[in-house]
Every structure is written in structure tokens, then in C-alpha cells.
């Protein structure tokens, strides 16, 4: 069973990024469960976790949200590469938070970034994932925690 603290660490890692990088806090929407692989948005930053827990945690966001986020960060390059960089940084932050909080139990990979609406995120078959909507301004992204 996933501990609340573990889930919170991932969630805080994500919301913290918005608060610090864009000076505007993100809130979390209504969390739910899902079996099988949930849908993703255009850009997804993934970290793999092994050790005491096995699985993946990823942050997936629509292009529209990332565009506004970049604007708030006073960025004026909205290229594909920049978008990938950005979700990579969010995943990086989540990964850093997790290493800080449970570095002793988890082995956490360097984030990887996938883009497109049908990417292959290697979920373990039969996993139940936690989906936590991340609401920021009028946009919504998803944090997916699929650990066992």
C-alpha cells in the first residue's frame, strides 16, 4: 500500500514547481484511481522508481498549459524542445523531492521526456495508478503515480 506521505511528496514536488518557477501556486484536483494506462497529454516527463517500490511516476501536461507556464517564466521560446525541457524540469523536481524524502528506500531514475498523445510509457500491466489532476490557472495537467 502506498503511504500518504509518499503520494504527498510527489504531489508537493509538482505543485512546488509551479509556485516557485511561475510564482503562482497550482492546486490539485480530485484524485482518482485507474487501472491500465491512463491517457496522457502532449508532453510527459517520466521518472522510473525501483527499490522498495517499483513503477513509474509521471507528469503529463497539455501544450496550452506549458505555453502559459513558459510565458509566466518570461520565456519567449515556445518550441517543441523548450516544451520538452519544461516537463523534464518538472519531473526533475519531483525526482529530487523523492530522493530527498525516501532516497534510502528508492532508486530514482533521471527523468526522461516523451511527447505526443500516444507515447509508450512502460506501465506494469495490471497496475492500478493514482491520477492526481494538477490545476493551474484554467489549465489542468496530471500527475500519475503507478507504484507497487
Amino acid at each position: 500500500m502506498l503511504y500518504e506521505q509518499e503520494l504527498k511528496t510527489f504531489v508537493e514536488g509538482t505543485t512546488n514547481f509551479f509556485e516557485v518557477a511561475a510564482q503562482q501556486p497550482a492546486s490539485i484536483g480530485s484524485p482518482y484511481l485507474m487501472e491500465g494506462s491512463p491517457s496522457v497529454h502532449e508532453y510527459t516527463g517520466v521518472i522510473n522508481i525501483s527499490g522498495k517500490r517499483e513503477g513509474v511516476v509521471y507528469f503529463t501536461a497539455p501544450k496550452a498549459m506549458l505555453t502559459v507556464l513558459l510565458m509566466k517564466m518570461q520565456e519567449n521560446d515556445f518550441s517543441h524542445e523548450t516544451m520538452r525541457d519544461l516537463v523534464g524540469e518538472v519531473a526533475n523536481t519531483i525526482s529530487g523531492n523523492a530522493r530527498r524524502d525516501f532516497g534510502r528506500d528508492f532508486v530514482i531514475s533521471v527523468p526522461s521526456v516523451v511527447s505526443g498523445e500516444k507515447p509508450s510509457i512502460p506501465l506494469r500491466p495490471g497496475h492500478r495508478s493514482f491520477i492526481i489532476p494538477i490545476n493551474w490557472r484554467s489549465h489542468s495537467a496530471k500527475l500519475v503515480v503507478a507504484l507497487a
Binding site: E4, L7, V11, P31, P133
Partner: peptide
């Protein structure tokens, strides 16, 4: 109420399903 209040719920739900 916010999404944070629902995090424990969804964890418990997961536990219950398991």
C-alpha cells in the same frame, strides 16, 4: 475543501480495492 483533502481518501480506496 481541496484536492489535498481527497488524497487520503483515494489511498484508502486503493487499499480497500486491494
Amino acid at each position: 475543501l481541496s484536492g489535498n483533502d481527497f488524497l487520503p481518501l483515494v489511498l484508502k480506496l486503493d487499499d480497500l480495492l486491494a
